[in-house]
Design a protein around this nucleic acid. Structure first.
Lengths: 289, 289
DNA sequence: GTTCCGCATGAATCGATAG
DNA sequence: ACTATCGATTCATGCGGAA
């Protein structure tokens, strides 16, 4: 384990904490900000109607500290308000563009285990946006780091696995390819699409689940190299920093709620093992088998 | 085949054709309009920057002819222009709301076999939006018509099928559940989510691919009953009308390009068989196997 | 060690009730 | 009337204990 990897967690509002960082410092910002909510919560309960105004000055700081080759990934989803999808997310996209951001792409996170419920006029919401913004068109992207086994080859290989391998161990590794993940490496690989198929991590009794580790892992691999700097300005319990550390990236996390801040620091002190580099099969493509 | 089902195809601009229809006539509008494009095409080549202005008067007519209990499904996806996702779709959402439409939901079509390709700064685009708009909150929705087998039950059931059943017949029916689809009915079913997993229909080189039949089928089942009226104001080769007819719904299709108009009429005259009512397993949920 | 089974756990949404 | 709170509803996942 390389001890030179730095992981810093700050307690406070990212608007103020980021002011202490220099320009053009980070290679990647990946975050899942507090979603708009009517209830009081961290950041004083951001009403959907005030969400854009609340977000913009913080995005300005993020732009400043991000390198010109860097990427900003924003995981967000609009709530239903009064029977309609609220427009604060699409308004935010437009305002961020006015701020100078390029709206390069919109990745999708397909939540395989979405929240249950039944309503007369609506189905369960099973997806969230992962908006990609950049400062310039010349951003770094390392596509080979997130390649996945090709479908055809995967299909024939699947036939030779036992049924139990397929059903049980699929769920265990979350790979969709059975347990011997290492056997799948150095095979015919394909580039993924802009749709990520991931389950939320429930059962983590410690804290409210934000996004699954696989989500920041994917973007960190895709947009950074080892020793790069990753920022999560709304880091929650520190998932982004935790996986950044595992991937040998330096990271800075900022969290305004003291209890999450403490959990973040605790998570970073837990000794980690490093299976993540071998973990090529977490994502996508294997949903048709 | 019930001969009383009416299927009308018109040649022309829907802005003018719809003017000949009365208020509150249709139960569902489902369409995939011509995408913004810089090249000359039907409707005179709609530049992305002019797309919203071009669309709005047509949406006004659609609103007029749609019943208050009806639904408008808009299948659309923004193009990449100059390295960025263009904003005409999210602008359109906001303008349609100003026009009085309610933005009830955004369904996703996950294209399981998306267009191949490789770019240095972008992955393949594997999803499109299916925006749901309504005139009121009291729209009709028939959720039971699109229920799918539950995940766990599907998994355990899969174990008892032979490998050849799984691989061979999966690809054949595209159902993901093997061949005896009817046996899966009246079992433990769950409501679907707002994510549709559908493959595009390749091989039909006759015309530019619009959407797969399964897409309008799903929305027609979800938002209409038999003998209801369905409209596709940009019907292309008539896919929507064709499946509406198969599902015993009356339909009106409008197309401005003469060659597509002719194909639409031809498709409606082809004798159809009616497997669609038994076909509950086309969609979603079974993408993790 | 392997397989099966039970069960808690969610970035949810609606409608009813209460202030 | 308008807003805040609360209960009911629902299901994929992964963990842990049992066979």
């Amino acid at each position: 384990m390389p001890t030179e990897i730095k992981s810093e967690i700050h307690l406070g509002d990212c608007l103020e904490i980021l002011a202490t960082y220099p320009d053009n410092f980070f290679d990647l910002i990946v975050t899942s900000p507090p979603y708009a909510d009517n209830r009081a919560n961290s950041y004083g309960g951001i009403n959907p109607d005030n969400y854009v105004a609340w977000f913009l000055p913080r995005a300005q700081q993020m732009s400043r500290v991000l390198k010109s080759t860097g990427t900003f990934i924003l995981n967000i989803k609009e709530k239903v308000v009064n029977g309609e999808r609220h427009t604060y997310v699409i308004e935010l996209i437009e305002e961020l563009r006015k701020q100078g951001w390029l709206w390069t792409e919109e990745f999708l996170w397909h939540k395989k285990n979405c929240y249950p419920g039944k309503w007369p006029n609506r189905f369960r919401d099973a997806w969230e946006r992962c908006l990609q913004f950049n400062k310039t068109k010349n951003f770094n992207m390392y596509q080979e780091a997130v390649m996945v086994p090709m479908g055809d080859w995967a299909k024939t290989r699947l036939k030779n696995l036992s049924d139990t391998d397929k059903t049980r161990d699929n769920s265990k590794v979350g790979s969709g390819f059975g347990k011997n993940v290492s056997n799948w490496l150095d095979r015919k690989m394909a580039y993924p699409t802009n749709v990520l198929h991931l389950a939320t991590e429930t059962g983590n009794r410690q804290h409210s689940a934000v996004f699954p580790k696989a989500l920041p892992i994917w973007f960190i691999k895709l947009f950074t190299q080892k020793d790069d700097w990753v920022l999560d300005p709304f880091c929650g319990v520190g998932t982004t920093c935790e996986v950044a550390q595992s991937l040998y990236r330096h990271s800075v996390g900022i969290e305004i709620k003291p209890e999450y801040y403490e959990l973040s620091k605790a998570n970073l002190n837990v000794p980690v093992n490093y299976p993540l580099f071998e973990d090529h099969n977490q994502y996508g493509k294997n949903h048709t088998e």
